[in-house]
Computed example of a mutant assay.
Amino acid sequence: MPVDDLITPEPILQLGLGFMASKTLLSAVELGVFTALAGGGRDGAALAAEVGLHPRSSADFLDALVSLALLTRDEDGTYRNTPAADLFLDRDKPSYVGGILEMANARLFGFWNHLTDALKTGTPQNEVAHSGAPFFATLSQDPAAWRNFLNGMNGVSTPLAGALAADFDWTGRRHLVDLGGALGAVPAAVLHTNPDITAAVFELPPVEPVFQEFVTSRGLTGRLTFHSGDFFTDPLPAADVYVMGQILHDWNLEQRRLLLQKAYDALPDGGTLIVYDAMIDDERRHNTYGLMLSLNMLIDTEGGSEYTVADATRWLRTAGFTTIDTRPLIGGYTALYATK
Rank of each mutant, 00 (worst) to 15 (best):
P2V: 00
V3N: 08
I7L: 15
L13R: 14
M20P: 01
T24I: 11
S27R: 15
A28Y: 07
V29D: 01
L31Y: 07
V33K: 07
A38G: 06
L47K: 04
A49W: 01
A49H: 10
L53H: 00
P55M: 05
S67E: 14
S67R: 11
L68H: 07
T72D: 12
R73N: 06
D76P: 02
G77L: 05
G77S: 10
T78D: 02
L87W: 12
L89I: 00
D90V: 04
K93C: 03
P94D: 13
L101G: 02
G110H: 15
L119K: 08
G122Y: 02
E127I: 04
E127A: 10
A129H: 01
S131E: 10
A137E: 15
T138V: 02
D142G: 06
R147H: 12
N154H: 14
G155V: 03
S157Q: 11
P159G: 07
W170I: 01
G172A: 09
R174Y: 00
L176C: 08
G181V: 02
G181R: 00
V186M: 12
A188G: 08
A188H: 04
H192I: 00
H192N: 14
P195F: 00
I197H: 04
V201C: 13
V201L: 09
V210Q: 05
V210F: 13
Q212E: 15
E213R: 13
V215L: 05
T221N: 07
T221K: 12
F226Y: 14
T233D: 13
P237K: 02
A238G: 07
A238K: 12
D240P: 07
V241E: 02
W251H: 13
K262S: 08
Y264I: 08
L273H: 01
V275K: 10
V275D: 05
Y276C: 14
R284Q: 15
R284S: 13
R285H: 10
H286E: 14
M292Q: 13
N296L: 14
I299P: 04
T308V: 05
A310V: 02
A312D: 03
T313F: 05
L316K: 02
R317T: 14
F321H: 03
T322L: 09
T323A: 14
I324A: 09
I324L: 03
I324N: 06
L329Q: 00
T339M: 04
K340S: 10
